[in-house]
Design a protein around this nucleic acid. Structure first.
Lengths: 246, 246
DNA sequence: TGATCTAATATGTATAGACAAATAATCGTC
DNA sequence: GACGATTATTTGTCTATACATATTAGATCA
């Protein structure tokens, strides 16, 4: 028996694997199979679809790593309990984002300093006291209007190349993305009132609501960078979308 | 030759698949293999690890669906270009979250109305004009202190059971999670100043910075619910974490 | 030179069979 | 009925093989 004999009956060229996966996903996501429902055993599925166990196994393990089902030996596979409420949060590259909307992107370096890490720096980025760090503060603009303040700390032990970079031209944001690989990241999102300095630099009223995003990244436990982005709350929305089934 | 002969040399019981995957992931995430680098061919890996092609194929396809590599027939597999900056945003179940911290959770239903969808409702949740919706507003408290205002619209055509539910006891939040499966969600995060009513209900100063999260969910294109959560900005942080390698 | 055809190659999908490991169910014993 | 050992079932992993399919590099030809 050869693989071709399993092309779907209607002649569509979809792989059998995809077809089974789609069928099961639909049953689960439609609520047809509620959480806790037992998915057919592998040997039942191989009969239904007239295929080998490897094929249905691949489908079921895939669904398991995607979190749609849970599998227990001897017991079977079960539709997972209520989905965790999670979403993919896209942290945009500001320059690319602005230009994608056809607006003119502007950038201004406000301050740059190489220094030994202070106690505050240490708390923020997690390097040793007096370890070399690069601190910079800059402003992003769209059509001449400030829309984000970036306050960044870079661990120079992890990213020594940062010293060679001319940050008066390239935003650190844009440079670091794609330059330095990371393995872990943490984000913290909060709303705060703008203080005097921030308000002046963003050209908004002191006390106005701002959306702040703090982001820290590591590579194998070593801190890379910590950044704090302050957006005027009214002009910036973060949109996160989630659709199951990669 | 049997499967057992591939137990890792040091006697660890890890599956060969896991070991290969770990090895390759480390190479990629450490930056050892930079973006664009060609991963060894399947036949090369099967020689290195002395295993069958199916095994390395499973590893490589896994890495591909995880987005770490890209595969091209005849050309080979390549480490992906700079990772998209995305993160898993955990939208917590408020009640569970508060109780997890050992604090007393309180809840108060402020308003509940069944009505035909207004134009505003239509814009917000996407149902037809005058379609039946359930609108409710409630407050979440931790240790007696308000920390979130929930303003929700439920599409009664999609979730008729909502009418039977006693929302003066159970937060809609908690009830909907795990009750109604969904396939798509959209989140919008912004900072806003509290208006008079909001400030009174949250017991904060009018104009204080608030973190608002809007969330809309669908099931197969049909709107389920739209919710707006308003948090006093100072007391609520959202933490999102990302670690590659499911 | 440039376009086109051809063969080689790497991945994509699938099969059938094998043994390992975990665990639910059963049976036997006290 | 409670407890413990045994058995059966299901998933987890792996092998060796096969053919399909996309794509590239090289050969061929206009």
């Amino acid at each position: 028996m050869n693989a071709k004999s399993h092309a779907s009956p209607n002649g569509s060229p979809t792989a059998l694997y995809q077809r089974i996966r789609g069928d099961l996903e639909r049953k689960i996501l439609s609520g047809d199979w509620p959480p806790g429902h037992r998915v057919p055993f592998e040997h039942e599925l191989m009969q239904s679809y007239d295929c080998s166990r490897m094929t249905v196994n691949k489908v079921l393990s895939g669904l398991a790593t995607a979190g749609l089902i849970e599998r227990r030996r001897r017991a079977g596979s079960f539709v997972s309990r209520p989905r965790v409420q999670s979403a993919i949060l896209q942290i945009p590259d500001l320059k690319a984002e602005v230009e994608k909307r056809g607006e003119h992107y502007g950038y201004r370096l406000l301050a740059l300093e190489k220094r030994g890490a202070s106690a505050a720096d240490k708390a923020r980025i997690g390097v040793a006291l007096r370890a070399p760090v690069l601190a910079l503060r800059c402003r992003h603009e769209a059509e001449g209007q400030p829309f984000a303040l970036e306050d960044r700390l870079i661990n120079l032990r992890a990213v020594p190349e940062a010293m060679q970079q001319d940050f008066s031209q390239t935003p650190p944001n844009t440079w670091l993305v794609g330059q330095v690989p990371w393995t872990e990241a943490e984000h913290r999102i909060a709303a705060e009132a703008a203080d005097e300095a921030t308000a002046a630099e963003l050209r908004i009223e002191p006390g106005a609501a701002c959306l702040t995003i703090e982001r820290r990244t590591w590579r194998g436990g070593e801190p890379i960078t910590a950044v704090r982005l302050i957006h005027p709350g009214h002009m910036y929305d973060l949109v996160a979308r989630f659709t199951p089934s990669a």
